[in-house]
Structure formats: structure tokens, C-alpha cells
């Protein structure tokens, strides 16, 4: 079975369709580390994905890859202090920023504005579904192949400097917010587990994350000025003081 390394987790998995190996090709692993887990995706797993909200109209091949992602995230939460965080994550000068909001608000659009402004200085870590992990006392964001409709991701990890909630506005403004203010946003944009042991792990990660990175709320339109504002404030921010 092919082996992959995603979010610094080495695992092996089968595939029924060719979509998953094509999607994950930049994350193939041929190193010496043993696989942490092995997972077989079955027709039942694909059927279970089809039953989830929003799965209508997607082909089985794509749902197979989602089933794998779900199992990877379950493992990451159980064993590696990892959560999936619906956001557009990018890095500049070795510092990662996560733009988060409900789908359709403009996360990816705002990331694009940063790329237009900063060019090659911007590393797109993942435009849709990065994994966030707590490793040796710090929070890192990892690229994953589940990268959104613009297909933007990099197989890397970068320490998180800040999380920014995106809201649409006619004018641009940015403010620091508290962990308590950011909490509902994070709860809505991360995958909550269903069992109590995992729920406690998940809530503990969320609690520490919110207390250890910079937290911002950006009201923005689609303009270079919006990117200048958010980059200017967040790249200077003393991001560890909430």
C-alpha cells in the first residue's frame, strides 16, 4: 500500500479509485520511519461520506479521499494533538496566519490579496483544510492535500503567529479579540468529535490554541488596502499576549 506523511504523521492506506493517490502525490513518503497507522477505506466508508451534509453530487472517488481525511484527522486528534481547522493558512517570513470564516465569506480572496501584495514572500500552506497541531509546546499549521477549490497547498509546517476571523465590510478595520470572543468562530470552523474522550482532547487543544496565538477580527472589502491593513497589524503584533 502507498505510504504518506501528512502533518508529520506517517501512515499507509489503500485506494479503490485513482483520485486519492493523485491528490496526495506530494505527500508520498518513502523514508524509513514506520507507519503510525494503516487504514483501509471501504465502500461502507464511502457510503458514510455520501450520507453527510453537503456530499450531494460528489463522485465516489472524491468521497473516498474525504473518508481518508476523516480517518487521518481522527488519528491526529486521538494521538497527535491535531485538529482540522477550516481556514486559509499562509506563511510570511516563517510566521503562519490563519484566515477563518464560514464558506463564501472571503478567506481565500483575502489570502490572494496578500499574494498580490507580497508575491513570493507568501507560502500558501493550505487554502481550505489545514491541520493544526500542538507540538513541543507550540502550535503549528500543516499543509494537507485537501486544499480547496484553488488547489493551493504546500507540504510544510509553520508555527502559527495569529488567527484572524474574516468579516465582510465596506471599510477596512482590524481589532484584537479575546479567546472568549474567538471561541465560537473556532468551534464552528473545526471538526468536533462525537465521543467524550476525544471531545475533551479537542476542547483542550482549542483552549490552549486560543491562549497562545494572536487573535484578530478583520472587517474587509476586496482591496489592496485591506491586505495592507491586516498584514501591517498582524505581522507586527505581539502575538503571544492575549
Amino acid at each position: 500500500m502507498p505510504r504518506y506523511k501528512i502533518a508529520d504523521i506517517v501512515f499507509e492506506t489503500n485506494h479503490i479509485y485513482a483520485y486519492t493517490p493523485a491528490l496526495c502525490k506530494n505527500y508520498l513518503y518513502d523514508g524509513d520511519a514506520p507507519s503510525e497507522f494503516s487504514v483501509e477505506i471501504t465502500r461502507d466508508d464511502i457510503a458514510a461520506e455520501r450520507g453527510k451534509e453537503g456530499a450531494e453530487g460528489f463522485p465516489d472517488a472524491y468521497l473516498e479521499s474525504l473518508a481518508l481525511f476523516r480517518k487521518l484527522c481522527e488519528y491526529a486528534l486521538k494521538e497527535r494533538e491535531g485538529i482540522i481547522f477550516h481556514s486559509s493558512a499562509l506563511a510570511v517570513d516563517g510566521k503562519a496566519y490563519l484566515f477563518t470564516a464560514p464558506s463564501g465569506t472571503g478567506k481565500s480572496t483575502h489570502s490572494r490579496l496578500w499574494r498580490e501584495m507580497l508575491g513570493d514572500k507568501v507560502v500558501m500552506i493550505n487554502d481550505d483544510k489545514p491541520i493544526v497541531r500542538f507540538v513541543d509546546g507550540d502550535f503549528y499549521v500543516y499543509g494537507t492535500p485537501w486544499n480547496g477549490k484553488h488547489r493551493l497547498d504546500t507540504n510544510c509546517r509553520v508555527k502559527i503567529a495569529a488567527i484572524c476571523e474574516i468579516k465582510r465590510g465596506e471599510k477596512n478595520s482590524i481589532e484584537k479579540i479575546t479567546p472568549r470572543e474567538m471561541l465560537p468562530v473556532v468551534l464552528n470552523q473545526t471538526l468536533r468529535p462525537g465521543e467524550v474522550a476525544e471531545m475533551d482532547k479537542y476542547l483542550s487543544i482549542v483552549d490552549r490554541l486560543l491562549k497562545s496565538v494572536g487573535l484578530y477580527r478583520l472587517h474587509c472589502n476586496i482591496s489592496r488596502e485591506a491586505a495592507e491593513l491586516s498584514y501591517g497589524v498582524m505581522s507586527k503584533g505581539d502575538n503571544n499576549e492575549n
Binding site: 479575546t178 479567546p179 472568549r180 474567538m182 471561541l183 465560537p184 468551534l187 468536533r192 462525537g194 465521543e195 467524550v196 471531545m199 475533551d200 476542547l203 482549542v206 483552549d207 486560543l210 491562549k211
Partner: peptide
Amino acid sequence: FILREVADSYLVVAVGEAVKQFNGV
């Protein structure tokens, strides 16, 4: 239904079978 303190807030969430009844916070 379990109560947890997270980020200076008190949250109630559902776990196990109760998730089918309530999926919010």
C-alpha cells in the same frame, strides 16, 4: 450532555448518542 470550561467560557456540548439529538454548542 457535558459542561466544560474553555477559553474563559462555559460550554455545553453533546457526546455519544446525544449528538444525534443536539449538534450545537
